[in-house]
Computed example of a mutant assay.
Amino acid sequence: MKSLKKQRRIQIIALAAAALVVSTALIGYAMRDGINFFRAPSQVMAEPPSATEVFRLGGLVEEGTLVRDQGERVHFSVTDGGASIPVVFTGVLPDLFAENQGMIGTGRYVNGVFEASEILAKHDETYMPKEVMDALKEQGVYQAPGES
């Protein structure tokens, strides 16, 4: 009688472990395209990603680099104070997008140019994305409002 209960308990534990492994694998498979790592321009220059890797690039839009082509194509550079990456984007930019303002773009780094598929800009006077702020602080470029 005891061996039957013990055998049943082992079967339940094995089934639960198998279900956990399968569910973890399914979650990982579903998220494989949804994870985009953040990089600052200095990190991209130090270790350029492959042309197929999608990631987020953030920093400040470099002054004097914003050029609008015919149509919706825009060229500009993003900097973190240590390095500058040229960016090309086709589409409508956010209303608050401007030079010397924080931005994050999602896209690929192909032949030395970041080809953005999405651009996000800061939403008010004091906001800056945490990743961008950390990268700029690391380069000694950023000071929080109220600091001197």
Rank of each mutant, 00 (worst) to 15 (best):
L93K: 11
F76W: 07
F37D: 15
V141Q: 08
Y127K: 11
D69A: 12
F97P: 05
Q70V: 13
L26G: 13
T90N: 10
R68P: 05
L96M: 12
A16R: 05
A25Y: 01
P49A: 04
A40I: 05
A144R: 04
E125W: 06
D80I: 11
E118L: 10
I85F: 03
M133V: 14
S3H: 12
D80L: 03
A144T: 14
Q139W: 04
L26H: 06
A18C: 11
V74C: 11
N100Y: 01
A40G: 06
V74H: 06
S3Q: 15
S42Y: 03
V141Y: 04
L15A: 15
Q70N: 11
Q70R: 11
V141C: 06
F76D: 14
A144W: 01
V78N: 09
A51N: 06
A25M: 12
G140V: 12
M45H: 03
F76C: 09
V113L: 00
Q11F: 06
R8F: 02
L60R: 08
G58T: 13
T106G: 07
M103Y: 05
I13L: 12
R8H: 09
A98H: 04
V61F: 07
Y109P: 02
E53L: 09
D80S: 04
I104R: 02
N111P: 00
G64W: 05
F97N: 10
S3M: 08
I85D: 08
Q101L: 13
M103K: 03
L60M: 13
G102M: 01
V61R: 07
S23E: 09
V21G: 01
V141D: 02
T90W: 00
N111W: 00
G58R: 10
K122G: 14
S148K: 11
M103N: 04
G91C: 07
S50D: 14
P41R: 01
L4W: 06
M103R: 00
I104L: 02
E72L: 12
G112E: 02
E131W: 00
L96R: 14
T52G: 03
G102S: 12
D69S: 14
Y127T: 15
E72Q: 12
D124T: 08
A98I: 02
A17I: 14
Y29D: 15
L26P: 07
D124M: 05
E138S: 07
T79Y: 06
P48M: 03
G81M: 10
